[in-house]
Computed example of a mutant assay.
Amino acid sequence: MGCNCGCGGKSQTKKWDLEPKFSDLKKGDKVEIVGYNEGDARYKSKLLSMGLVRGVTLEVLQIAPLGDPIEVSVLSYRLSLRRQEANVLKLKRV
């Protein structure tokens, strides 16, 4: 079954149109924090106290060899975050 939009049954949604999860980021990606998903309130509090608030831009600097943690540049410092814990962040690509 295809749609009636004229795409020939192929989706027009591009990968970069979707909100990325923190765990999907690659080296060099730049994202902006747009909010928080449901999750551990204590961990959200820690992220907020480190300056990870709405409107802040993150740049992925390095990813550990086994994929966890991820080092990001935020504000004027570097921060390493675990993938699954940081998925609480709602992001959009910059």
Rank of each mutant, 00 (worst) to 15 (best):
M1D: 08
M1Y: 14
M1P: 05
C3N: 13
C3R: 13
N4V: 07
C5A: 11
C7D: 06
G8W: 14
G8S: 10
G9E: 11
K10V: 15
K10W: 13
S11R: 10
Q12K: 12
Q12M: 10
K15Q: 14
K15T: 13
W16S: 07
D17K: 13
L18C: 10
P20V: 03
K21S: 09
K21W: 14
F22N: 01
D24M: 08
D24G: 09
L25S: 02
L25T: 02
L25E: 03
L25H: 02
K27N: 08
K27F: 07
K27I: 15
G28A: 12
D29L: 05
D29W: 08
E32S: 03
E32R: 12
I33Y: 03
G35L: 08
Y36V: 00
Y36A: 00
Y36T: 00
Y36G: 00
N37L: 05
E38K: 12
A41G: 00
A41H: 04
A41P: 03
A41L: 08
Y43V: 02
K44R: 08
K44C: 01
K44W: 02
K46Y: 15
L47V: 01
L48T: 02
S49G: 01
M50E: 06
V53T: 11
R54A: 06
R54P: 00
G55S: 05
E59L: 06
E59F: 04
E59N: 06
V60C: 05
V60I: 14
Q62H: 15
A64R: 07
P65L: 11
L66K: 15
L66P: 01
G67V: 14
D68A: 08
D68L: 05
P69A: 10
P69N: 09
I70P: 01
I70V: 13
S73A: 12
S73Q: 11
V74Q: 05
L75G: 03
Y77N: 07
Y77G: 04
R78V: 06
S80Y: 09
L81E: 01
L81P: 01
R82A: 05
R82W: 07
R83P: 00
Q84F: 09
Q84K: 14
E85R: 09
E85L: 12
A86E: 01
V88P: 00
K90M: 11
K90I: 04
L91M: 04
K92E: 14
K92H: 10
